[in-house]
Computed example of a mutant assay.
Amino acid sequence: MASHPAHPQPEKTAQITLPARSYRIDPTRALVAATICWTGFALMVWLVLSGRSAGFDAAGLQLWRRGPDLHPAGPKWLLEAVRDFTALGGVLLRHLVAAGALVALLFLRLRREAVLLAGTIVGGWVLNSVVKAAVGRPRPTLVSHLMDAGGSSFPSGHSFNSAVVYIAIALAFAAMSPRQSVRITLIAVAAAITILVSASRVWLGVHYPSDVTAGWLGGAGWAFLASAILHRPAKNVAKEAEDKLEELTPGELDPR
């Protein structure tokens, strides 16, 4: 009796499940966090401009340095590790990470979060540049610089901009989860990374402790403030872009 060949089973295709909706970080909590950070930032500005940060800055620069030449203590590999950390706040790597995050958000069709992230990063860069130009503080000369650094010292651009970028990215991706524990973990990890970036600038001798403290507080404060005040404008921009694309490709876009 001839056997009939079994019908070939259709191949299973991989499916990508996009988030059904995006959640918003509580704007009240974001404003509280921003207020705390900006209060600390204003205090650091006052301390620097009044000359009251000198003792804190000198102690911080010499904290982990030894010998007559005030060379950082520790093995050679530690210096390379510190330089790797500081690179996370550098222009090239920071922008590459931000670009990757924006592409990922657009792929996930979280257009509101992508627009908000872009606006936060650009606004933070402008704000840091304005404060740097207004204060015009020179770089520290108490210890040797272990890498090249140019421009004004206050606030630290690496500290400010890395806090803006990484915390804003954490806030954007935290919007994908309804679980508060996940959101807090993402934001805490981003904060920890940027604190290490800030500490690396002092370790390398290119910034005063007050520079990086103010930079981190200002950057984190702006990331939280932007999350609260730029949410609606970002949503409107994303909706307008979505409507235009819908006109060009009717029925092909996810309505999310």
Rank of each mutant, 00 (worst) to 15 (best):
K12T: 10
V212T: 13
V182I: 02
F154S: 09
L116I: 01
G219E: 01
E252R: 14
R66V: 15
K132T: 11
S3A: 14
T28G: 04
G157R: 10
L102A: 03
I195K: 05
A234C: 07
V91P: 10
G219T: 01
A42C: 13
T213I: 12
I121L: 06
P209I: 11
A99Y: 01
V122H: 02
T86I: 09
H158E: 12
V82S: 08
W222D: 05
V32K: 03
D84H: 09
R83T: 01
W77Q: 04
S181E: 00
R179C: 00
S156D: 09
L102E: 01
R83I: 10
R24G: 05
L31H: 02
G90N: 13
L49V: 12
A134C: 08
L31M: 08
A42P: 09
P140D: 09
T17I: 15
L70K: 11
I121V: 14
H95S: 15
P250Y: 08
E246K: 12
P250A: 10
P75I: 03
T39C: 13
G60V: 14
K132L: 12
G40K: 02
R112V: 06
G150H: 14
P10H: 10
G123I: 02
K239I: 03
T249G: 00
A33E: 02
W125M: 10
S129W: 10
S177T: 07
S3M: 09
R109H: 14
L47V: 09
A133H: 10
I193F: 06
A149H: 03
K235Y: 05
A220T: 04
A149I: 00
S162R: 06
V212N: 07
A163I: 01
N128F: 08
G218K: 09
S200C: 09
E246I: 03
R24C: 01
G67Q: 13
E247G: 04
T17D: 11
L171P: 01
R183I: 00
L116M: 05
H7L: 15
L110Y: 04
T185S: 04
R52N: 15
D57L: 15
I16L: 15
D211M: 12
A174D: 02
I121P: 04
A149Q: 07
L117A: 00
H71D: 14
P255A: 15
V164F: 06
P27V: 00
S198V: 06
D57K: 14
H7E: 14
R52Y: 13
F41E: 05
G218S: 07
R137F: 06
W77M: 06
R183C: 04
S177Y: 02
G74F: 09
L146R: 10
L146C: 08
P8A: 13
